[in-house]
């Protein structure tokens, strides 16, 4: 027999890291960010960009161990662009130190490259761990975790419905834009032409959404949104079983890094 509907809407993950409870993932995320800052703080004269790079290596290991390496890297695309901009801009505009490279008017000096790596990898590290969290945690799991944590129902509703609304409105905006093209409204050409296409693409979307919101309120009330009851959920958030171990390891790493920075370096 086919799997029941109730079974089909559940999320099961085989990978122990991928399947961590969302709360544990959140703690790992926070500790990782703390470690990034521990590595970045200049308590001594030591220059530390290399540590940031090594710490990024740890992130890649986390990606790989979660079994989501490719997916996480794809999620990093926007971050890599910013990283590249920071590295290029900082290496070029920051003066000071030895000249490392010179080609015509372009010079890269030691301090510039250092700052570039420091800033660049810090952004990469902090942003990367968020990418890991969101690539390995579905919206459904986040919503369920919010509910489990006792967050107000309205907040959980707003969060999930926002993600769905963006999907919906994005789709509708593409439909409207195509319809406009078909009706001969220019969406390419000079700036004024393109600017003129913006408003008629957006306003009808907002209007439909707002007038729809009134009826949506009625719908939600009819479905018992305001009933005084302890809500239940057909979707059950699962644990992978590695939660305690992961917590201990992350805490140990954090404490060890902090101790090393305070007492040794």
């Amino acid at each position: 027999m086919d799997k029941s509907f109730l079974e089909q809407v559940q999320i099961h993950k085989k990978n122990k890291l991928d399947g961590l409870h969302s709360k544990t993932k959140m703690i790992v995320l926070i500790l990782y960010v703390i470690c990034t800052f521990i590595l970045a703080v200049k308590v001594t004269r030591l220059q530390l960009p290399l540590y940031q790079i090594a710490w990024f290596g740890v992130l890649l290991v986390i990606f790989a161990l979660s079994g989501q390496f490719a997916k996480c890297l794809r999620g990093m695309r926007a971050v890599f662009v910013v990283f590249a901009v920071i590295v290029i801009a900082q290496s070029l505009i920051q003066p000071g130190g030895e000249i490392l490279f010179k080609l015509g008017p372009i010079t890269i000096e030691e301090h510039g490259l250092q700052k570039a790596c420091n800033l660049g990898f810090m952004v990469l590290d902090v942003a990367g761990i968020f990418v890991w969290f969101f690539q390995t945690t579905s919206h459904k799991e986040i919503a369920a975790a919010l509910r489990e944590a006792g967050v107000n129902d309205k907040i959980a509703y707003v969060f999930v419905s926002t993600l769905k609304m963006i999907d919906e409105m994005g789709k509708n905006s593409r439909t409207i834009m195509n319809a406009q093209r078909a009706r001969g409204i220019e969406t390419e050409g000079n700036l004024m032409v393109r600017a003129k296409a913006f408003v008629p693409s957006l306003i009808p979307l907002v209007l439909t959404a707002i007038t729809g919101a009134e009826e949506r309120v009625v719908t939600l009330e009819a479905r018992g949104f305001s009933v005084n009851a302890q809500k239940t959920s057909v979707f059950k958030l699962e644990k992978s079983g590695a939660e305690t171990l992961v917590l201990i390891v992350s805490l140990l790493i954090t404490v060890a890094l902090a101790a090393w920075r305070i007492f040794l370096a």
Partner: peptide
């Protein structure tokens, strides 16, 4: 409460 998701979607879209 229903306006908030719309506002966010308008920002993004």
């Amino acid at each position: 409460i229903l306006l908030i998701p719309i506002g966010v979607a308008v920002n993004v879209v």
